[in-house]
Design a protein around this nucleic acid. Structure first.
Lengths: 219, 219
DNA sequence: ATAAAATTAAGTATTTATACTTAGTTTTGT
DNA sequence: ACAAAACTAAGTATAAATACTTAATTTTAT
């Protein structure tokens, strides 16, 4: 049985969520609060498994409340509720230590999934805010977190789109045959592009080509 | 109008997704592929806005395909499809540069939301995989970020001193003539060493040689 | 609409690399 | 001292890259 505390300043919203969750065996709403301060008190009294808390509330907002709670009751899981996918809210919620984030328009199924997930020690952030998370926190190989890149030399030439494409394949040490197959062009064409690249970069072998490509940051 | 390419090895799945998306104005499936290699070709030919790609496929899996595509067609957005929320798949997809991740059980609404989101330059990772993302990539106040472990593979062979010497020159993309001059040996000798290196590392081209050398940390 | 730029690809000759094999000459370990 | 391992390098045949040129399409910009 998962014990839940609901914090939202609108009774209607609390009732709605309660209805949504409670005809589901396994989840029970044991107490409620109508602002952040109250949420703190209720959590300290009841030690629920999960606190579902709205972000915009009077007295003390949900994010501040969660930051406090996470300091003192580390095993109370927290699920943020918000009207919109505000970047600021999402970022601050994560920094505060929230275990999940749902929009108020979430379906019953998603609500239940989220509560179960965070109760069992996982996280649940709705897909609607994934874009914000990825852009602000994740630097996967291909994602940007604004690296301070060294100054590139000025290009005394311009490469066409196709040439850049072929350059990148050449730099992977692929031979013309492979490049041709990959781009669905004739091997002879690949050769021409490679030849033009060598000319433009004034390289007389692959080694020089990679070096210049690095210098000009074509890499 | 958003142009989509679908890659999945099951025709039924493709048909299902197509049906799901196409009665929605604004999205059109312009081509299909049944494995990763084919996906590469189709993408190179059609330059779609979005590639929806299954992860488990024969020939070349979806993650490898996306990694390739992201290198050469940076503005083709990619949406991964997977049966389950496998940690490995999610992590590798993000590292490959995927723009989104959906489970096959996603609703029509979520599908359409995801396609629109990635097409417009955003990200869409379903809530079901948020836990994985948070645990692996996000270091909010309370989450851990793990260091990448550079574990070298065990060497199933031994390189001689001379071979290591020549390997390092080969990896600098120097040709046999240059290497021979540098080491004051005959070009033919350099060739033999290079040949033996290729054999030992089981590489069939320079590209594979550099990759294996990296794997075994001979670099 | 049309000129300029880009992409495509063939032709030709020369140089390198690849894929081996064989084999003579050092080094090195015990 | 002596066998094993390492280094050297030639032979041969095939495949690929290099270094160009020419030129037919296709795309892009004005």
């Amino acid at each position: 049985m998962i014990n839940v505390v609901l914090a939202d300043d609108h009774v209607l919203v609390r009732d709605g969520i309660k209805a949504l969750l409670e005809d589901q065996t396994g989840i029970v709403v044991i107490d409620e609060a109508s602002n952040g301060k109250e949420a703190l008190e209720v959590v300290s009294k009841n030690k629920p498994h999960v606190l579902i808390i709205d972000i915009r509330m009077p007295e003390m907002n949900g994010i501040e409340a969660v930051a406090e709670i996470k300091k003192h009751y580390k095993d109370v899981k927290t699920l943020m509720l918000s009207m919109h996918d505000s970047e600021e809210y999402v970022v601050k919620s994560i920094q505060a230590g929230a275990d999940g984030y749902l929009l108020k328009g979430a379906s019953k199924e998603e609500f239940i999934k989220a509560v179960n997930k965070v109760a069992s020690g996982g996280k649940y952030f709705t897909g609607d805010v994934s874009s914000i998370i990825m852009n602000n926190f994740v630097n996967g190989t291909a994602t940007k977190v604004e690296e301070p890149k060294p100054v590139a030399k000025e290009l005394p030439f311009k490469l066409t789109k196709r040439e850049k494409q072929i350059l990148s394949l050449v730099l992977e040490l692929k031979n013309n045959k492979v490049i041709a197959e990959e781009l669905q062009i004739s091997k002879r064409t690949a050769e021409v592009h490679r030849f033009n690249l060598m000319k433009k970069l004034e390289a007389k072998n692959l080694q020089e080509l990679t070096n210049k490509a690095k210098d000009y940051q074509l890499i």
